[in-house]
Amino acid sequence: MSTSNLPSLSAARRGSPWGRRILITATWIVFTLFLLLPLYIVLSEALKEGFGTFFSAIIEPDALSALKLTLIATGISLPLNVVFGVAAAWCVSKYEFRGKSILVTLIDLPFSVSPVIAGLVYVLLFGAQGLLGPWLQDHDIQIVFAVPGIVLATLFVTFPFVARELIPLMQEQGTQEEEAARLLGASGWQMFWHVTLPNIKWGLIYGVVLCNARAMGEFGAVSVVSGHIRGVTNTLPLHVEILYNEYNHVAAFSVASLLLALALLTLLFKQWSESRLTSQNSTRETH
């Protein structure tokens, strides 16, 4: 009785073969229409006039400067967000304090606020007419319409990724291994380096990858604070937009495919770290 129950139960979960086929087909259609087709168009448009035009659009000075700025903004915001993210996750998961739930909500704020508003806040704060504008001008510090503004905007929109990834992981792992390390004479730094970090390693890498993808692709917030000065404050996404608005489609799609390549690289890295993370979790759960 009980053995014949099992297959029929899972058959019930699978539903009728027709329903299954329709769902899978529908998924593939949506996937092709909204993901594969645009990718194909980007690449085919970029290569419409051959590889020569494609490469000249990419190695054009403005494009290279945009690539450089994108890498700088990502390169600065990534390590800072790793530090902020680990610190925030540590506070939330290892300590009990007043206002903890407010802090957790605030960490999510960049997810819920429109990036354009985030950019506007920085303009209102640091712009010429802004709150700190006169003071910054007196001291000859340029934030808005310059690299610092772009880094700040990128930092803001990518802040939650690392912390969000680590908080549940660290909460699940608890504090006992850290306590054991302290009892065995480890200093705070030794404990973090030898016990905490190896335990959160894969989750941290996964968070960094997500953070990286978003930092390179960020448009809204950066667009507001950048000022679109060609060759100076343009990031890759902004450069694509300018080229497109100038009806320079081939160049726009060429630079877009450069961004695409960076994204694919990130995605591969994400896939790898994710598989490491799940294998780590599954070996733990089997015991």
Binding site: Q176, E177, E179, A180, A181, R182, L183, L184, G185, A186, S187, H194, V195, P198, N199, R284
Partner: peptide, 17 residues
């Protein structure tokens, strides 16, 4: 804690995984 020189054994072992 680290200067008290006590050995501590946890219910759930707390071995470094």
């Amino acid at each position: 804690v680290r200067d008290r020189n006590v050995g501590f054994v946890f219910q759930h072992y707390a071995l470094f995984r």
